[in-house]
Write a protein that binds this DNA or RNA. Structure first.
Length: 478
RNA sequence: CGGGGUGUGGCGAAGCUUGGUAUCGCGCAUGGUUCGGGACCAUGAGGCCGUGGGUUCGAAUCCCACCACUCCGACCA
């Protein structure tokens, strides 16, 4: 029946994971390339995933008291220069505007790579009293970073994200905020994207330019590589001092406030693809799938079939599910393959036999299970299957994370694990950056995080042999 | 930024060595027959051969430069 040579096949993921990824991203119509390197078109299906992530996050931000704002796109060079570490970190990736019309500008303007400086400048003007605090701001926007190598979703030069920026009277309050927002990201990942996360702190070497602490959630992809999927930063009062943000406390003493920022980007969509996808294409978590259930009428030319398919779809929509009917004139087999490739969590096949029996055949993308559900109360049936799908996907990803996280006690062991198996490697660490560099040079791994809930896995740093009091998760990162 | 690969209708390829104005499959449009795992017939539309220069009577083809994509490495807040 299948005529393979006519079929646009996607590359086998075990043969060439990178090519598989590119195939999925383009054939599922998530992304199109543009004329400029690193700039991509997010097509409707890809953008819809982002909109769903956005809606979930935005709701959580508002529940935790944040307000949305919009900051300028351009940053004067002098403003960017104010915080030394920050500018050093970002300068190599800045794109500059130097002309307005035909006139060369007196001061060149950076297209924002991130907006800390803009928020700071604004707060320096508007914050005066402890009564003005905290400031809990967020903005949805795109930023520009002139990356050298680019890949769809994983590393764009321009990417969509949200950046939260907050200002607090005390360090404790700011740290609490930083940890709270990391928790929001982790919750979204696990409960909506079905991606288990490893939460922790970045080492000094890996932290954000200008941050005192950087928190991260790290996810493991299908190929065992790590993807940083959301970070939050605690800045202390460093930026406040650099930008002259002060407030009068209750005792009328001038104080520097403490600042945080946190971001979550379209990169997470790449994470979803590489966590759940398989050789048939995308597998989308029900929580963010643009279409959660697709109704495929079979023998749609026969009287009543199309009508019943539409009715079924309407029933699902009324119940709050994202559903659609595929009324295209492709063959049913073509539609099955197509919607699988696009990762639709549930397919509902409805033909004359089903209508006669008052049921339809549901096929779950995550595991291919075929389940007959009665047309009466179909929404509940679909909802249950979606819930199970999420559970199956999360469990599978969690099992992979657990199976591919290995403890090592020597550098040789780290090397052989990464060469033969990949994944995450957990070791003790003395805390010396030199050892971190050694791990990178000798074994090719970077520290992903110092995980929360430090579990002791040994007493000796594998790189230097000295006493180690920290535990670090290492890996090869995207 | 260094090294490799690629660039020909929307997609995948042939043509390039040996210069003569582009071929095939899929897709697309229209009509018809089909329909439970990528159906079929008929007719038809669609190409500045990545871009710019050069050589030549003549360039998809030869030469130079650039651009983009892709993989590996470096870098990556």
């Amino acid at each position: 029946m299948a005529k393979d040579k006519k079929v646009e096949r996607i590359t086998d993921m075990d043969a060439d994971f990178a090519q598989w990824y590119t195939d999925v991203v383009t054939r599922a119509e998530l992304i199109d390339y543009s004329g400029v390197k690193g700039f991509y078109v997010l097509r409707p299906y890809g953008y819809a995933i982002w909109e769903n992530i956005q809606a979930e996050l935005d709701r959580r931000f508002k529940e935790t008291g944040h307000e949305n704002v919009s900051m300028p796109l351009l940053i004067p060079e002098s403003l960017l220069q104010k915080e030394k570490d920050h500018v050093e970190g970002f300068a190599p990736e800045c794109a500059w505007v130097t002309y307005g019309g035909a006139e060369e500008l007196e001061e060149r303007l950076c297209i924002r790579p991130t907006s800390e400086t803009l928020f700071c400048e604004h707060w320096a003007r508007t914050v005066e009293s402890w009564r003005d605090l905290p400031k809990l701001y967020n903005q949805w926007c795109s930023v520009l970073r002139w990356e050298k190598s680019t890949r769809p979703f994983l590393r764009h030069r321009e990417f969509l994200w949200q950046e939260g920026h907050t200002l607090h009277a005390t360090a404790e309050e700011a740290i609490e905020e930083t940890e709270r927002m990391l928790g929001v990201y982790a919750e979204l990942c696990e409960n909506y994207l079905a991606m288990p996360v490893t939460k922790g702190l970045k080492t000094d070497r890996e932290k954000f330019a200008g941050a005192e602490r950087t928190y991260t959630i790290e996810c493991m992809m299908h190929d065992g590589k790590a993807l940083q999927n959301g970070t939050s930063h605690y800045f202390g009062d460093g930026f406040a001092r650099a930008f002259g943000i002060t407030f009068s406390d209750k005792n009328n003493t001038l104080q520097y406030p403490h600042e945080t920022s946190w971001g979550y980007a379209t990169r997470s969509i790449g994470g979803v693809i590489m966590t759940h996808g398989d050789n048939s294409g995308l597998v989308l978590p029900p929580g963010v799938a643009p279409v959660q259930a697709v109704v495929v009428p079979v023998a749609s030319h026969k009287p009543g079939v199309l009508e019943r398919a539409r009715e079924l779809c309407e029933t699902l929509k009324r119940a709050g599910l994202r559903a659609k009917t595929d009324e295209s004139d492709n063959s049913p087999g073509w539609k099955f393959a197509e919607h699988e490739m696009r990762g639709v969590p549930v397919r509902l096949e409805l033909g004359p036999r089903d209508i006669e029996g008052g049921k339809c055949v549901a096929v779950r993308r995550a595991d291919g299970a075929k389940i007959e559900i009665p047309l009466e109360g179909a929404a509940e049936g679909v909802r249950a299957i979606l819930k199970e799908a999420h559970g199956i996907m999360f469990a599978r990803a969690k099992a992979r994370l657990d199976e591919n996280t290995r403890v090592a006690s020597s550098l040789d062991e780290v090397k052989s694990i990464i060469a033969e198996k990949g994944g995450f490697i957990v070791t003790p660490w003395c805390g010396d950056e030199a050892c971190e560099i050694r791990m990178k040079e000798d074994a090719g791994v970077t520290s992903r995080c110092i995980p929360f809930g430090q579990e002791r896995v040994g007493d000796v740093c594998p790189a230097c042999g000295r006493t180690a009091d920290k535990t670090v998760v290492w890996g090869v990162a995207y």
